[in-house]
Write a protein that binds this DNA or RNA. Sequence first.
RNA 1: GUGGUUGUAGCUCAGUUGGUUAGAGCGCUGGAUUGUGAUUCCAGAGGUCGCCGGUUCGAACCCGGUCUUCCACCCCA
Length: 447
Amino acid sequence: MKPSIPKGTRDFLPHEVRRRNYIFDVIRQHFHRYGYQPIETPVMENLSTLTGKYGEEGDRLLFKVLNNGDFLRKADTGDLAAQDSDAVLPQISKRGLRYDLTVPFARYVVMHQNDLAFPFKRYAIAPVWRADRPQKGRYNEFYQCDADVVGSDSLLYEAELTQLLDEVFAALGLKAVIRLNNRKILAGLAEIAGHADRMMDITIAIDKLDKIGEAGVEKELLERGVDAGAVQVIKQFLGVTSLEKVAPLLQESEIGRRGIAELQEVFDRVGSLTSRVEFDVTLARGLNYYTGCIYEVAVDTDAHPTIKMGSIAGGGRYADLTGIFGGRDLPGVGISFGAERIYDVLEELDLFPADASEDLQYLLVCLDDESLAHGFDVLRLLRQSGQNADLYPEAGKLGKMLKYADQRNAPRVIIIGSREAQTGQYSVKHMKTGEQETASLHELLGR
RNA sequence: GUGGUUGUAGCUCAGUUGGUUAGAGCGCUGGAUUGUGAUUCCAGAGGUCGCCGGUUCGAACCCGGUCUUCCACCCCA
C-alpha cells in the first residue's frame, strides 16, 4: 500500500522545520518581551465548548472526534435510520479538535479565574484544525501564534499589540501594512444607514471592496436585502481613508463616535513604527465576537510587489467572550500571527537568515578505522565545548563523505587521516569557499 | 458545503487520431579520481502511468467512480 497523509496536512523536512522554528522563535521572543505568558490547552475540547462559537460556517468546519467503544449502540436507532447527521452527531461524538486558540483560552480563563492575576496576558503557539477545503496557504492543520490579554478594557493594550505586530514584522525583515478599524464604527455606519440590526451583512459586503470593487459591494448589499437608500449612505464611507473624514459621517451615531474616539486614542499612542499603519473603514474580519478595535496585517505591496497573499496576522477586541462559559464577563483583546503564510512570504522573498537552515558547525570525516576511533573522541570534545558536530560513522571515500557534508549543509568539515591523527593538526575545509586550513584541537575547541 | 482543475521515474515535465519495449532534464548509484563536495566526462539503476472498475482485439490516452492537488465561491490564517 502506498503511504499518504490526510488531505490538507503536510510533512516537513528538517530545513523547513528549522525555518518554521525561526519564525516561532522571533514571535515567542517578542511575546515574552511584552509580558505575555505561555499556557497550554488540549488539542481536543469538548464539542460543547466549541460549537456555536464560530457561527454556522464554523460549526461545519469543526473536526469531530468519534466516541470510543461501541458508539453506534448508544445512538438513537430512529435518527440513524433517518440518516439525520445533525441529530446523530451529538450521540456519537462528544469531542472535537480545537478550531482556534481563542475560544479554548476563554474556557481556560473561566476554569482558572481564581488562579489568575488580571489583567492576564497569555500567549500560545500551537496547531489548530479546520475542515476547510484546502487551497494554497490554506490547510486543514496549521499553526496559530496568539497573544491575548483579558480583564482590562484599557486601550493601552490595543496600542501595545500594534507595536508588537510592528516589531515582529520588522524583526522578520518584512515590510507590512497594519490596518485598523473598530467594530463600533461599523455599528455606527449600520445605524446611520438605518440598518443597525444588519451590521454583519453590511460589514461582510464592504469587507470585499478591494476584491469586487464598489459596484460589487453595492450589488452584494442589495442581494443581502439592504435597501437602495441605505446603500447610498454606505457608499459615502467606502472612499474614506482617514478618521478625520469619517467622523462627520458618524456625527449622529453615539456608538460610531465612541469607535472613532477609541481608534484615535490608539493612533495617538502607538508612536512611530516601521510598518505603515492605516485606518481602513472596510476592514471587517469575520469572527463575530469582536466588538471594538480590529486589526489586520498584510504584506506591504509597495515594498514587495510580487507577493500575493491574504492577511498574515490579525486580531481585535472582544467585550464578552468568557460570559458564554458562565464566567464573569471579562473584556479582552488579542492578536494572532499566521505563521504558515508568513513562511510562504519569507520564502518567496528569500528573507530567511542563512543560519536558519544551518544546524551543524562541524562534520568530521575519517579516512581509516584508526582515525575514526580518534575522530569519535574529537567529536565528543567538540560537543562538550558546546559546538554542534557530527561524524560520518565509517571510514570511507573522501569524495563521498564530502558530498554527505554538502547535503547536511555543514559549513566546515574536519578531515582526519593518519597524518592528522598523529600530528594533532586537523584539516578544516570550509565548504562555501573550498578553502582549507589546519587547526589544533585547542584551536577548534576554543572557537 | 457548491462548481471546476490536476495526477506519468526521487523532483520538474514531454508522450501524436487508442497500436509493439512509456521518454527528457535534474537528482541518485558506480567509475574516470583508494586524501577533496558543489563544476567536467563515461556508464548504470530506477515506472502497478494516483487507485478501482468499464468500453475495446488492444488504454498513460476514451467513460464512470474514488482519492489527491490547485483554483473560484463560502469562509478564513
